[in-house]
């Protein structure tokens, strides 16, 4: 399923969305950067509370399809501008990680 489609179905607001056609393969939840570096996979949608500059670097390094900021915690304009420059998608959800991950899991599972 594409990032644009996932965003629509899960009511995610696209803060930076360089490629809505990018495929989302699976999801990943963690607030630990080293955990994300070790275990987030290419094409995963990464749900996290972290919203500082280093998240952009980790997203780029892991090749995730996008970063979803949960619970309405939006990153600063500086972070979004770095994301734009690096071509990293950032989306915003009002829901918490548990609920959003549950919905994403059902959505992607239904597709499998």
């Amino acid at each position: 399923m594409t990032l644009g489609e996932v965003a629509k179905r899960l009511e995610l607001k696209g803060l930076v969305l360089p490629d809505p056609g990018r495929q989302v393969r699976w999801g990943f939840c963690s607030d630990l950067l080293s955990d994300a570096l070790a275990h987030a996979g290419e094409g995963d949608l990464w749900l996290t509370h972290q919203r500082h500059l280093n998240v952009v670097a980790v997203a780029k390094l892991t090749g995730v399809a996008g970063v979803v900021c949960v619970r309405g915690l939006a990153p600063s304009p500086e972070v979004l501008s770095r994301a734009r420059a690096e071509g990293v998608a950032f989306l915003l959800s009002r829901q918490d990680t548990f609920e959003l991950a549950g919905r994403l899991f059902r959505l992607l599972q239904g597709e499998a």
Binding site: L32, L33, S34, A38, T48, Q50, H52
Partner: peptide, 14 residues
């Protein structure tokens, strides 16, 4: 900020 998971050096080695 999400650092200090104690996985930095193990990740480098891996």
């Amino acid at each position: 900020l999400g650092f200090g998971a104690g996985m930095g050096i193990p990740n480098m080695e891996k």
